[in-house]
Amino acid sequence: MKILNNEINILKEAGNNRMAAIGGAIVIMLTLIAILASLLSPHDPFEQKLENRLLNPCFEYPFGTDDLGRCIFSRLIFGTRYSLAIGVTVVGITALVGTSLGIVSGYSRGIIDEIIMRIVDIVLAFPGIILALVIAGILGPSFLNVVIALSLTHWPAYTRLVRGLTLTLREMDFIEGAKALRASNIYIMRRHILPNCINPIIVLATLDIAHAIIFATALSFLGLGIQPPTPEWGSMLKAGIPYFRISPHLTFFPGTAIMVTVLAFNFLGDGLRDMIDPKINENILVSE
């Protein structure tokens, strides 16, 4: 059976590699744009020129200008910084916290497991965006608070994933073996369980960056996230709404930026999932 799976996976890998490569290339490009924003942008993103307001895309302003005469192109370039920063920070915090709780929960079972999983259930009982809205509403709008709100709503996914993996792993012979060697529980969790969970965590984290970016732009769009005049994609989208009929480019370009970014991370995540499928690592003929 394994031989077959293997062959199929290798085929799949080849097909999906292209998607992952496109996704990866866009992600790298976005990172470079975020780092080199001040070099790449033709104008100061905060500079208002009221005489140039609501200009259509032209040579000087490639994506046109907004209602205050600011260059949309430059603002989008600077916005990359905020979106990526939020995505990466939120995922960094949630993956760390969620994974630790998941391993502890799955490995220790019993009362600790019960407590952690009930908390997970409670958080998951609320739709994520509503919970984030409430938290952001209470804390007030700012970059830090957006990160806090999103982190508080995103960690259960990791806990559940990792707990499930841990439950399977802890029954395996090499864990029993480590116990027979009298290794401490912390050692087993760190050296044996965590490394075997890493691949699925990376996949989930990549997909989750996309999710966090959407959430962050949604919060900004609703006025609970990063505040104007900061060039954040969500708030730019919001600012463009009143001019949707006369100047659709105010909403079109930020919307496209969000879409491309999110799709790129999704492509990358899906591609990674197929590439690091553990079955590929198995020896081709061992269980012939």
Binding site: D173, F174, G177, R191, P195, I198, V286
Partner: peptide, 15 residues
């Protein structure tokens, strides 16, 4: 000490 039945699962695949 103990030696298990299935050598393929007796060692951590990432070590």
């Amino acid at each position: 000490q103990i030696i298990f039945q299935n050598p393929e699962t007796s060692l951590n695949p990432r070590m």
